[in-house]
């Protein structure tokens, strides 16, 4: 049963990513892949909030795994971030490639930490 919920929420997460990505892209035409970054940072913030809710406010493990592994996992993407970084490297945009790779990790880490901290407060 949990697997089914994870699948459904993963599907909803991926569809949400597609919509958010498309919406950011229509407003941002520069080289830097902002859309994926926006998706990954917001998804990391959400997984932090969920984990904080689990740790400090008794959110059940089943709902945590469905929302975190399912929705947040389906919503965020590592592979697209890697492909976009490779494309920047191929285009000779080494500084933007580095900024995207390093920035993604640090901003997502910060967003997750903020999410947990807000729930702990």
């Amino acid at each position: 049963m949990t697997v089914l919920l994870i699948a459904v929420f993963g599907g909803i997460g991926a569809a949400s990513r597609f919509v958010v990505d498309g919406s950011v892209r229509t407003r941002w035409s520069r080289v830097f892949p902002l859309a994926t970054l926006v998706v990954n940072v917001t998804g990391s913030f959400l997984i932090g909030l969920l984990n904080g809710a689990h740790l400090y406010h008794g959110l059940g493990s089943t709902w945590l795994v469905v929302a975190a592994t399912g929705f947040c996992g389906g919503y965020t993407t590592f592979s697209t971030a890697m492909v976009e970084t490779v494309r920047l490297i191929q285009a000779g945009e080494l500084r933007r490639a580095t900024a995207n790779a390093v920035g993604s990790v640090l901003l997502c880490l910060g967003a997750a930490a903020l999410g947990v901290a807000l729930m702990a407060a």
Binding site: G10, G11, G13, A14, R17, F18, N40, G43, S44, L46, I47, G48, N51, A68, T69, C72, G73, G74, Y75, T76, T77, F78, S79, T80, A81, S104, V105, C108, L109, A111, A112, A113, V116
Partner: peptide
């Protein structure tokens, strides 16, 4: 691509696992 492989990989779990290790 966007669906299967995008959903297969995850940045949020990576971020949370890094945060948990630091914690």
């Amino acid at each position: 691509g966007t669906g299967v492989l995008g959903g297969f990989t995850t940045f949020s779990s990576l971020a949370l696992e890094m945060e948990r290790l630091i914690a």
